[in-house]
């Protein structure tokens, strides 16, 4: 027995090696590089020069606005995406005729086949002076400006991240056993009460996953604020693009990246702790 478990362990180690190497090279190594950079000096012509200093961390306050912007827009954007995505996911998973389900699902995915860049770019025209505002103007609302406002950024966020929110919720609603809904109705609950007491709590894993996905990606977002906020709504992502691609201050950019990673780690571990505590909805499905 002992021999066998030893050789098993060997096999496991061999099989896990590629994954381990991948993990080391793709995740750990870059992180280490960034960490080392964050303590270095900016080379005179830009980039990285060795050394050890904490000045970049001490200087984080210079990007305080970017941090507070990101930490405001990310949760608000996540919440708005959720409010838009849930009814859509619900409709797709529960209400829609089977025959059209696939078509509608594909329609939700199709925009993903084009780069977010192009799609966001289209919104510059739609929200610009010759787009929606000109129609509003025609109706009688003069001088409305949509583009380059916080509202435009939030709209872009909801638009861009919708599928990421829709799909986890859709999946959790789709695999929800329809007999739970019938049972609830059978026991006297109106459709509204059934939704609040059964559908919503049972779809919480999807909601949590969707929110986490969108939130994490929003923390690194730079394209939407640049395009739809006219560069005036500045996220951490924009600060990083600037530092790495324009001013070439790699060490400061690295320090900001590390800070961002730490913020995300804290968020994710809070999320994990929360879902573990509420795991009553997660485990059951397979067992029931």
């Amino acid at each position: 027995m002992k021999e066998q478990s030893k050789s098993n362990r060997w096999l496991t180690a061999v099989l896990l090696t590629p994954t381990g190497l991948w993990f080391a090279f793709m995740l750990v190594l870059p992180l280490i590089v960034i960490l080392v950079f964050s303590f270095g000096e900016r080379a005179p012509v830009g980039g990285y020069a060795g050394g050890f200093t904490l000045e970049h961390y001490a200087n984080l306050g210079a990007r305080l606005k970017a941090f507070t912007n990101t930490l405001t827009y990310a949760p608000v954007g996540t919440l708005l995406s959720l409010l838009v995505a849930y009814p859509l996911a619900y409709y797709l998973a529960i209400k829609v005729n089977r025959r059209y389900k696939l078509i509608l699902l594909v329609l939700v995915i199709v925009p993903f086949w084009t780069s977010l860049l192009i799609r966001t770019y289209a919104w510059i025209y739609i929200l610009g002076g010759k787009g929606l505002p000109s129609i509003l103007d025609w109706i009688g609302f003069e001088g409305v400006r949509l583009i380059n406002t916080p509202g435009a950024v939030l709209m872009g966020i909801v638009y861009g991240y919708l599928p990421l929110m829709v799909f986890p919720i859709y999946v959790s609603l789709e695999k929800l056993n329809k007999s739970y809904l019938e049972a609830s109705s059978d026991l006297g609950a109106s459709p509204y009460k059934t939704f609040m007491q059964v559908t919503l709590p049972l779809s919480m894993p999807g909601v949590a996953t969707g929110c986490m996905l969108v939130f994490i990606l929003l923390m690194g977002e730079f394209l939407i604020p640049a395009f739809l906020g006219g560069g005036k709504v500045f996220f951490i992502g924009n600060a990083l693009v600037d530092l790495f691609l324009q001013s070439r201050n790699w060490p400061f950019g690295s320090a900001i990246s590390i800070t961002l990673v730490v913020i995300m780690l804290i968020t994710v571990s809070l999320y994990m702790r929360m879902t573990m505590r509420n795991s009553k909805t997660g485990v059951d499905e397979s067992l029931m």
């Binding site: 025209y125 010759k130 787009g131 006219g230 005036k232």
Partner: peptide, 20 residues
Amino acid sequence: SKPHLFAITSDYQPGMRSGD
């Protein structure tokens, strides 16, 4: 001047053409 700006972008043709 920042609060008075329409945008900070080198991509200024669309903004100029749209009338914004």
